[in-house]
Simulated scan of single mutants.
Amino acid sequence: MIPLQRGPLPEDLSARLAARTERLADRGGGARELWRDSRTVRRDLSAHLVAMAAGLSRCMYCGDSEGTSIDHFQPIALAPMRAFDWLNHLWACAFCNSNQKRDRYPTDRHGLALLIDPTTDEPADHLNLVLSTGAYRPRTPKGHETILIFGLDRPVLERGRAQAYVRCRSMLRDLARTTAAGERAEAAAVAHALTVQPFADVLYEMLRLSTAPRAALVFGAEAVAGLNLLKGPRSTERGPFRG
């Protein structure tokens, strides 16, 4: 899971969302039905969520599968008046949304969410990614519940992250070598491929750790050089993870 930037919506779409929320208030219910019937709104929202997602329309939770639908972070069953709230919409794959999360929304004793929202939280504050094994370890109760609810400890995801780590190191070395050789087109292609592959959380974690004292020893000097090329003028906090 990586942090994501939520931008503003066009005025027209914001107005349509607000109008539907007003209809809900007037009707006193029926949020699911109104959401299901709002096909054009869902289509337009999906386009903005895809633009926010990492890589090529990746699920904002597992980072592996293609996102397929809008997830209500706070489920409609618990917060029907937030059905059309832009700040409550995330892009998810069918497995994370329908098989894992469903209507689960754990909270602490103050009623605050115990799930990571990647548009407002820094996932690394709550999750520790062990790059060599692909396993997530919780740093906080929010991290623990996020792993549990979204099944981030599924063996297939852990294997996928571990392989992504091997792939990233190799591609970063290629990026450093092609750049040093003046092969600009090839270097640009490698950099783009790095940033749109699944499991963006692996590359994100490598970028985060690239300035650590032992980074060159752990990743290899050429891989660190590739990470520095990827960062360029960008912050290490958010990589260039857009398709």
Rank of each mutant, 00 (worst) to 15 (best):
S170P: 01
H126C: 05
Y204R: 05
T211G: 05
R137M: 09
F219Y: 07
V130Y: 09
L90W: 02
E237N: 13
Y204H: 12
T211N: 10
G160E: 07
L203S: 03
V202P: 06
L127G: 12
L17F: 09
R234I: 06
Y105E: 09
S210Q: 14
N99E: 15
E158S: 15
L194H: 00
G239E: 07
P75K: 08
R214P: 00
T146F: 08
M52D: 08
R43M: 04
V196Q: 14
R242N: 10
L24M: 00
A47M: 07
E237P: 00
P138N: 07
G226W: 02
H126S: 14
L49T: 06
L175C: 02
S170H: 14
S69T: 12
E183Y: 05
R208C: 01
L217I: 11
I70E: 09
A15G: 15
T68S: 15
A223F: 00
S132K: 12
L157M: 08
D26G: 10
Q163N: 11
I76P: 07
A113T: 15
Y165Q: 06
T146S: 14
T21N: 04
L157P: 04
P106T: 14
D121K: 12
T133C: 01
L157Y: 12
A215W: 03
A47H: 08
F95C: 02
F219H: 04
